[in-house]
Simulated scan of single mutants.
Amino acid sequence: MTRHEARVIALQSLYQIEIGQAQTMQAIAYAVGETKVSDEEMQFIQQLVFGVVNHQQELDELLVRSLENWSLDRVGKVELCILRLSGYELVFDNTTEVRIVINEAVELGKEFGAENSGKFINGVLAKLVPAAEAMRS
């Protein structure tokens, strides 16, 4: 399983939590389904999902500052989950390069979001990166 595939599972889990109010482990288990996942891959998925869940308030505050003329309520749920996921990786997880996090987020937006989601996500993350880098140091 690639890191991208693991992020897809994390995104699907976060979406279930956001929409269906599913419990975190139930959402992960459902998103994984029959997919063969190693212990290391499961650890990465859980790190992402629990990281977003545990830091959601901080992430949402950062996102609000990065959205111009938008509120979180106006952001589509898929895009919001992608922004939270990438925001978590940018701020709280120093293991992935910034450009890779942004590229992954844009690709997830293109794959699962609306027509212009990739551009929207890229624009929001471009504004979030300076704050994320300040928080990392």
Results as ranks from 00 to 15, higher is better:
residue 116 N to C: 06
residue 63 L to C: 07
residue 133 E to A: 15
residue 73 D to G: 03
residue 52 V to C: 08
residue 19 I to L: 14
residue 61 E to N: 05
residue 85 L to E: 10
residue 57 Q to T: 05
residue 99 R to P: 12
residue 136 R to I: 00
residue 80 L to Y: 13
residue 10 A to S: 12
residue 91 V to C: 15
residue 92 F to K: 01
residue 46 Q to K: 02
residue 10 A to V: 08
residue 82 I to Q: 09
residue 20 G to H: 03
residue 126 A to Y: 10
residue 27 A to S: 10
residue 109 G to L: 04
residue 96 T to M: 15
residue 118 G to Q: 00
residue 8 V to E: 13
residue 136 R to Q: 10
residue 95 T to L: 04
residue 85 L to Y: 05
residue 66 S to N: 10
residue 104 E to W: 00
residue 8 V to C: 06
residue 101 V to Y: 03
residue 44 F to S: 02
residue 134 A to V: 00
residue 44 F to Y: 06
residue 2 T to P: 01
residue 59 L to I: 11
residue 39 D to N: 05
residue 68 E to S: 13
residue 15 Y to G: 11
residue 113 G to S: 06
residue 34 E to Q: 07
residue 118 G to S: 03
residue 78 V to N: 09
residue 62 L to W: 10
residue 31 A to L: 13
residue 109 G to H: 11
residue 87 G to F: 09
residue 46 Q to R: 04
residue 30 Y to F: 14
residue 34 E to W: 02
residue 9 I to Y: 01
residue 131 A to D: 11
residue 4 H to A: 08
residue 60 D to N: 12
residue 40 E to T: 12
residue 62 L to N: 11
residue 81 C to A: 15
residue 117 S to K: 03
residue 4 H to E: 08
residue 31 A to M: 14
residue 2 T to H: 09
residue 11 L to V: 06
residue 49 V to K: 00
residue 40 E to N: 15
residue 49 V to F: 01
residue 117 S to L: 03
residue 128 L to S: 00
residue 102 I to P: 02
residue 37 V to M: 04
residue 31 A to K: 01
residue 11 L to Y: 04
residue 26 Q to G: 04
residue 130 P to K: 00
residue 115 E to D: 05
residue 115 E to N: 01
residue 58 E to N: 15
residue 67 L to M: 11
residue 97 E to H: 11
residue 5 E to H: 03
residue 3 R to K: 14
residue 1 M to I: 09
residue 120 F to S: 09
residue 41 E to V: 13
residue 135 M to A: 15
residue 29 A to Q: 09
residue 57 Q to R: 15
residue 30 Y to T: 02
residue 75 V to Y: 06
residue 15 Y to K: 00
residue 113 G to M: 02
residue 122 N to H: 06
residue 83 L to F: 13
residue 53 V to K: 03
residue 28 I to V: 14
residue 92 F to H: 06
residue 130 P to G: 06
residue 82 I to Y: 01
residue 103 N to H: 07
residue 66 S to C: 10
residue 12 Q to C: 08
residue 105 A to W: 00
residue 75 V to S: 00
residue 52 V to T: 07
residue 44 F to V: 07
residue 87 G to R: 03
residue 31 A to V: 04
residue 103 N to P: 03
residue 88 Y to H: 06
residue 16 Q to P: 01
residue 53 V to H: 04
